[in-house]
């Protein structure tokens, strides 16, 4: 079992690297294009929402890092899940004619987006350090939080990939849900805006996943509740995903 797990990880990792090379290989800036796109988004959102919400915020210096960290994690999460929804369909011809582990496809997708997320995060930290003269990152908490978030994104993406190859209206449903979730999660706005409705953040799993990475990036540490939610999601979600793949493995070629 360890051998087949290592083969799965190596195959997925090399597949992710090939995807990145194929996607960005012939561009002048490579994966930095992704960082540029996010920078433009953050600048536009920061300027707009920082201005209209200025009475509720402590200032741009506090809001922009908060917004940046949230957008970076959300970009990783939503890109992984959205891309996984179509990944079996786009590779159907290959999958029909080779015996390869199906789970490797969404795992590759998440790994690819994880590499890009880490690149963007390092760049953001460097820019923050240059602008504000310090690097407040709580590195141990960031690493453990990022690992937990990545593991959760992994099972969610794998399950989404499986469900979407069976039910062809699910990709649209998932994309729509993620769009709504973006606005309902404290990314553009801070959780203290909720006032006495703070529980709406506490019951939002996306809020906890984002907090696991955002707070360490801003020099803090995630709450015990966020850790518990992240670990509980991982435990239940990964078990459901493993069972789903075991049950569906022989049916997937008939769904392609």
């Amino acid at each position: 079992m360890l051998d087949s797990t290592m083969i799965l990880i190596r195959f997925s990792a090399y597949g992710a690297w090939v995807d990145i090379r194929n996607h960005f290989g012939r561009t002048r800036l490579g994966t930095l294009w992704n960082a540029l796109g996010l920078t433009a988004l953050i600048a536009a959102l920061g300027l707009f929402f920082g201005t209209i919400l200025k009475n509720e915020l402590a200032g741009y210096a506090a809001y922009l890092p908060f917004l940046t960290a949230g957008v970076l994690v959300w970009a990783f999460l939503s890109a992984s899940i959205n891309q996984s929804c179509s990944v079996f369909g786009t590779r159907a011809q290959t999958l029909r004619h080779t015996a390869q582990p199906f789970a490797a496809i969404p795992i590759s997708t998440v790994m690819r987006n994880l590499i890009i997320f880490l690149q963007n995060t390092v760049l953001a930290v460097i820019i923050y350090g240059v602008v504000f003269g310090s690097f407040p990152v709580h590195l141990p908490a960031f690493i453990t939080g990022a690992v937990l978030v990545a593991a959760n994104v992994l099972w969610i993406s794998a399950l989404a990939a499986l469900a979407c190859i069976r039910f062809r209206d699910l990709p649209q449903l998932i994309a729509g849900t993620l769009n709504v979730a973006f606005f309902l999660t404290p990314i553009l706005w801070q959780e203290h805006f909720l006032g006495r409705y703070a529980i709406l953040a506490d019951i939002n799993p996306a809020y906890h996943l984002i907090s696991l990475v955002r707070l360490p990036l801003l020099g803090g540490a995630p709450t015990a509740l966020s850790w518990m939610v992240g670990l509980a999601m991982l435990g239940v979600g990964s078990a459901v995903t493993v069972i789903a793949y075991a049950q569906a493995r022989q049916k997937i070629p008939y769904w392609l």
């Binding site: 083969i7 195959f11 597949g15 194929n22 290959t94 080779t98």
Partner: peptide, 22 residues
């Protein structure tokens, strides 16, 4: 053409299949 990822190079295809073969 079937069974191979059309965007991967022949070299990458060999590496991926070799990894799958352990």
């Amino acid at each position: 053409g079937f069974g191979f990822d059309p965007s991967a190079s022949a070299y990458d295809t060999i590496v991926l299949r070799s990894i799958l073969a352990g």
